[in-house]
């Protein structure tokens, strides 16, 4: 009897303090297998995502949209699908797109996005007339503070070194206040919060956000009074992709939907983690029960 209990406790011990590498294998498989299967489900947009979609969708052609690339390779798997889908939506609606970066890593991603999405998919979009890459400038919130009043003080040239005064689509733009919508893609510092604090609120400019899931909950207090809408994490990207696909099936049916494609892996991994938590708790309470029983016997 005592031996059985000892063995039983040994098993509990082992499960309680299992080598974490076994857990790592489960997580890796939970992500890899669904990705290889390539399944995709429709997503229903939540109100906060729909609000940003509606804002972009209702802007008249020729309106100015500033997209700020405030992220890097660390969060690109989450953010890039949002950038791609909003850029496609904006170009489809005929908006003038201003690209810039408050993060140094953002400029490389801006160039990649232009090369991968804008140029091949929207050949009619002309540089300097329909879109411009302003590039990266240092200064974080200090940069936003300057350009909210005078854009050309910081941006004397675009990313290619062209005199900003010679760019047709910059002739009517004096400051950020001339933008009809600013969407910040990021989640860290500086990011959506700084855009709201230093541009949106003082300049009365509509700010939208597309951020990592980690920072999404912290941005809810700004919605809807200080932020028009928010895409939080890959789920936000998937919802936007699904909705835009639903509304513009002809234009979007052949376009990639990385957000929706990742959702199945996301679902399986979430379920595996939930099972781990449940199993860990069951082990913990069984272990604690045994400990108590042993202590009482002593």
């Amino acid at each position: 009897m005592a031996n059985d209990e000892k063995n039983n406790r040994g098993l509990l011990d082992r499960l309680q303090f299992i080598d974490r590498r076994y857990i790592f294998i489960f997580i890796a498989l939970a992500v890899i297998i669904p990705l290889l299967l390539g399944l995709r489900f429709e997503e229903k947009p939540s109100p906060i995502v729909l609000a940003l979609y509606d804002k972009v969708d209702n802007m008249p052609p020729g309106s100015r949209l500033l997209m700020s690339f405030d992220y890097g390779p660390t969060t690109a798997p989450e953010i890039q699908p949002m950038v791609d889908v909003i850029l496609r939506h904006a170009c489809l609606r005929g908006l003038k797109v201003y690209l810039m970066a408050v993060w140094a890593t953002g400029q490389s991603l801006t160039v990649q996005t232009v090369e991968d999405v804008l140029i091949p998919e929207f050949p009619d979009y002309e540089y300097g007339i329909d879109y411009i890459n302003l590039g990266y400038k240092a200064g974080n919130q200090g940069l936003i503070r300057v350009i909210v009043d005078d854009m050309k003080r910081m941006y004397s040239t675009d990313a290619n070194g062209t005199d900003i005064e010679q760019v047709p689509m910059m002739k009517q733009v004096e400051s950020l206040k001339d933008m009809d919508l600013i969407v910040s893609f990021g989640g860290g510092f500086p990011g959506i919060k700084e855009w709201i604090l230093f541009a949106g609120d003082p300049g009365a400019i509509p700010i939208g956000g597309a951020c990592t899931a980690v920072s999404a909950p912290q941005l809810y207090p700004y919605y809807p009074n200080q932020m028009v809408g928010l895409l939080g994490g890959i789920k936000g990207a998937a919802e936007y992709e699904s909705h835009v696909l639903d509304r513009y099936p002809d234009s979007f049916k052949t376009k990639p939907t990385p957000g929706m494609n990742m959702m199945v892996a996301q679902m399986v991994a979430h379920i595996v983690i939930m099972l781990f938590i449940v199993f860990g708790n069951v082990m913990y309470f069984m272990y604690r029960g045994k400990e108590r029983k042993l202590a009482m016997e002593k």
Binding site: I27, A28, V31, P77, A213, V214, K235, M262, Q266, H270
Partner: peptide
């Protein structure tokens, strides 16, 4: 949301 973010990066 944190779990969601980390899984996305791994994916």
């Amino acid at each position: 949301y944190t779990v969601m973010a980390r899984i996305s990066l791994l994916a």
